[in-house]
């Protein structure tokens, strides 16, 4: 069960500013989900290898050949803030 404080920590770990009033609903819905997962506890999975992706392919590699870069205009087109040709952001600390 996720407690209220843990819920807030998780929201911060996800970098999502969840409003104080929404915390109980988040807690409730996620805890219900965890309860729902109880069924997998008895799945006979011991020692079974994992499947990450349903693709049956392996070792898909690309030749080391350069493709021209996108234009700097395209690169910056969607940027919320720009300084010269760089993305600008508020201070980090």
């Amino acid at each position: 069960m996720i407690q209220k404080d843990e819920m807030k920590e998780l929201a911060w770990a996800a970098r999502i500013a969840v409003g104080e009033k929404d915390i109980p609903e988040f807690q409730d819905k996620i805890n219900k989900k965890l309860a729902y997962y109880a069924v997998i506890a008895d799945a006979p999975a011991d020692g079974v290898p994992k499947t990450v992706n349903p693709s049956r392919l392996n070792t898909v590699l690309r030749k080391d050949a350069v493709v021209p870069s996108m234009s700097v205009e395209d690169a910056l087109k969607n940027a919320p803030d720009v300084h010269e040709t760089s993305f600008k952001i508020p201070k980090i600390l």
């Binding site: 350069v66 870069s69 996108m70 700097v72 010269e84 040709t85």
Partner: peptide, 25 residues
């Protein structure tokens, strides 16, 4: 010394270029 980056075909030789000119999406 590889010509391209790890997961895309952009050049690894970006050192003398302006910011954000040697890249893809």
């Amino acid at each position: 010394k590889a010509a391209t980056k790890m997961f895309c075909s952009c050049t690894t030789d970006y050192t003398d270029n302006d910011a954000n000119t040697c890249l893809c999406a």
